[in-house]
Design a protein around this nucleic acid. Sequence first.
DNA 1: ACGAGCGCCTGTCGGC
DNA 2: TGCCGACAGGCGCTCG
Length: 274
Amino acid sequence: MPELPEVETIRRALKHGGRGAESIVGRQVLESRLLWERTLAEPTQIEFQERILGQGITDIDRRGKFLLLQLSTDTLIFHLRMSGDLNVVNENEPIASHDRLWLGLDGGLRLSFNDTRKFGRAWLVPDPHAVTANLGPEPLGEGFTAHDFHARLLAHRRQLKPLLMDQSFLAGLGNIYTDEALHLSKLHPLQISDTLNETQSGRLWSSIRQVLQEGIERQGASIDWVYKGGDFQNYFRVYQRTGEPCPECGNPIQRITVGQRGTHYCQNCQPQSS
DNA sequence: ACGAGCGCCTGTCGGC
DNA sequence: TGCCGACAGGCGCTCG
């Protein structure tokens, strides 16, 4: 579930309440349990237990697809990868079947990291920068200008889709929102980054921001058995719509593989130019 | 510098 | 019904 809009939706729920739970800001960690060892990237399980007990949750931030729980002295960072989610439940609730790590909080709450496919990771570190240092700019950040984006595109000679999904180039896009942004900007997923003129890169810049903003407003997308509450999936332009009519021109949506990822686009609206 | 292949995991779906 | 491959919102690694 996790691209920028889904992570942002979870962040807001943890910070302000929502998704059927109350805010965890201001709560204190009283207990911790690691149920799948590899979920904890850093530090060791022993050190994790020792360090986190007693720390208070002071704020919830996001950087790209990383969720940052600011604690009294450390930062607890989660990356949800393919199937991760964070739930706040009453401590009387049974442990869910794919819970991998959970924290007992004061007030009778439990924060649990649930992750069917076990790709997700957690870090407890003194300095969050150690984990997020290699990320590119925030696409919705004020410092991310169309001008800078164009310069960054020209600095590489790469296919647009894999480049946009490279988190060191831009932080937050995944398979869904990349396909959506490319279709909205009428650019082919295989077009080479340094062939874009300023008009094209400007269109891509605003398309990326538009689809991410819409995703956040719709509280993310809910697909397959992983239900999160958002409904952006009902507004996909091309993603997983192979063979269905393009919303712009009516031609059937094509599916190809780019960088080992399913890629959806319209041959007519997104011509291969170079 | 870049792209392809693969590993990490569990689950669903369609075809035979 | 059972089995089997394809596929799934991500990313780190190796190898050309």
